[in-house]
């Protein structure tokens, strides 16, 4: 489904991605882990063109992505570390905004769909609240519902629990686990090793802009091949 080949990205003189090659199949759940500054987030942001890569290629269903293909972006949902909910819109308006603007869904249908999604993330009672009234965990669940409202085929998560208080992490991970069960293709940049181990089909370990290991979680966490992965796991586990 996603075919990444020799992906390179620089910010000024510093090269953050030094040639990433990998394939992600439909329905796969990928956990991207690694030390901070290793290029995980940049890699994820390249996948939906929030960053434009300098070299290499990203193909989705065989088609090269570039800015002109805004249709491709509709296929990809993204959840951010800092939620990025629209503060001047209610929860319901946050979720219905893009379907109405982009997919031209009528208001009634968008709202019906949004309420179903809110129920799925356990926030039916917050439909008319403004984001400032929600806890971090609730905000992130709304953000997930907002991304799902566009019916994406792929969901990208950029450290979705890193900005949360510890007691809120679980509720967000639970929503993500439910999403895994639906067969959604997911790429998750995360520091939650337990979660990665439990739900991921594959772990991509990145360090210094390179993809160092690409392994099943059971093998990666028990028996990391490279020294860099060993050092990293020793620090975080």
């Amino acid at each position: 489904m996603i075919d990444v080949n020799g992906l390179r990205k620089s910010f000024g003189p510093s090269e953050v991605l030094k040639g990433i090659t990998t394939k992600i199949s439909k329905g796969e759940v990928i956990a991207v882990i690694g030390p901070s500054g290793s290029g995980k987030s940049t890699f994820l942001r390249c996948l939906n063109l929030l960053e434009t890569h300098n070299a290499g290629s990203i193909k989705i269903d065989g088609k090269e992505i570039d800015q002109l293909e805004s249709n491709l972006r509709k296929k990809i949902g993204m959840v951010f570390q800092h939620f990025n909910l629209f503060p001047h819109l209610t929860v319901l308006e946050n979720i219905t905004f893009a379907p109405q603007q982009v997919l031209k869904t009528n208001k009634k249908e968008a709202e019906k769909n949004a309420l179903e999604l809110l129920q799925a993330v356990g926030l039916s009672d917050k439909a008319h609240a403004y984001p400032s009234r929600l806890s971090g965990g609730q905000k992130q669940r709304v953000a997930i519902a907002r991304a799902l409202a566009m019916n994406p085929e792929i969901m990208l998560f950029d450290e979705p629990t890193s900005a949360l208080d510890p007691e809120m992490v679980k509720e967000v991970l639970q929503v993500m686990k439910n999403l895994v069960k639906t067969g959604m293709t997911m790429v998750i940049v995360t520091h939650e090793m337990g979660f990665a181990k439990e739900v991921a089909d594959r772990v991509l370990f990145m360090d210094d802009g390179r993809l160092v290991e690409d392994e099943q979680p059971a093998i990666f966490f028990e028996n990391p091949k490279t020294e860099r992965a060993q050092v990293f796991l020793e620090k975080v586990l």
Binding site: L50, S70, M78, Q101, R146
Partner: peptide, 10 residues
């Protein structure tokens, strides 16, 4: 802006 772009909003 990023959230809007990621949702495909023109």
């Amino acid at each position: 802006k990023e959230a809007a772009i990621a949702l495909g909003v023109p």
